[in-house]
Amino acid sequence: MIKYYVRVSTVEQKLNRQLLAYDKADIVYSDKVSGKDKERPQLKVMLEGLQNGDVVVVKSLDRLSRSTMDLLEITKEIEDKRATLKVLDKDIDTGTAIGKFFLTIIGAVVELERENINQRVREGVAIAKAEGKYKGRKKGSIELKGDSLNRFKMFYNKGFNKTELSKEFGVPRATIYRWEKVLKERGDL
């Protein structure tokens, strides 16, 4: 069975690019949560349901994990179930020895590049703050509407706490408090 895993970091982001990249999956699993967190609901369901001969497909390594350590742990979990991992954009297949080797190397390079990007962003923000140009995120830049609004109300009404909601929706806890306040003012909660 072919299991396609797709992920974006926030509820505002769309899965379309990943979904259009591959259409041969028997089952698609999708999460809208940061790749830094290994505890992702659909990733967990997929990994628990793997069987001998299954193939896990991802568009790119960063969709599966941002950390080399987590990537290797997830890959080991896949291999322990006698399944394989295929990465579309790097043409990696862990069913081969060379595929396993490249996965480890590329995973380390991806993590290094992510750390370099984060460092450049921090430096840029520090410079902008020193010049008085950085004002932070625009107020209301993370909106809650449509399916996301319905999901939020469902999780909220089921008693999820602010930390759980923050992780589920990939936003800071302060945003959860703001959403709660606005929805209560509108009479939606």
Rank of each mutant, 00 (worst) to 15 (best):
V55C: 03
S9M: 06
L47C: 11
V57L: 01
G95D: 05
R7T: 05
V8G: 04
V87Y: 01
F160C: 05
G187V: 03
L72F: 09
K162N: 08
G95W: 03
M46D: 11
Q51F: 02
E123T: 14
E185D: 15
K145S: 14
V33Q: 15
K90C: 04
D70N: 15
I92D: 00
L43V: 09
S60V: 01
S34Q: 12
V6G: 03
E79T: 05
E123G: 09
R82N: 15
K76N: 12
I142A: 08
N52G: 04
R173H: 06
E77M: 02
R137D: 07
A25M: 10
R186K: 15
R178P: 00
G132R: 12
K133C: 09
K32Y: 06
K44D: 14
V109W: 10
I106E: 00
A174W: 05
E79R: 07
V45D: 10
K133H: 13
R7I: 04
I117S: 12
T68E: 07
K139A: 08
D31I: 02
N116M: 14
Y177Q: 11
Q18P: 08
K129D: 10
K86S: 01
Q119A: 15
D54W: 08
E164I: 05
L19H: 04
N116S: 15
Y22Q: 13
F152R: 02
D89P: 00
L19D: 04
E164V: 00
G107V: 04
K76Q: 09
G49Q: 13
G159P: 00
N157E: 14
R17C: 06
I127E: 14
R114T: 08
Q51P: 00
M154V: 02
R40L: 10
R178K: 13
Q13K: 14
L189D: 05
G53T: 01
E185G: 04
D23W: 06
I142C: 02
K129L: 09
E48F: 04
K162A: 04
K14L: 10
S148I: 00
R173V: 15
D89C: 02
F169V: 02
S148T: 08
T75F: 01
V109G: 08
E164W: 04
G124H: 11
T75I: 01
K90H: 12
V45I: 15
M1F: 08
Q13I: 10
K38W: 02
A21E: 12
T75Q: 08
G53H: 00
V171C: 12
M1Q: 12
T75Y: 01
K133R: 15
Y177H: 09
L183M: 06
V33Y: 05
E79I: 03
Q18A: 11
F155N: 03
V87F: 00
V8Y: 03
A128K: 13
G140E: 09
S141I: 04
D62W: 01
N150M: 07
R120Y: 11
R40H: 12
L189M: 11
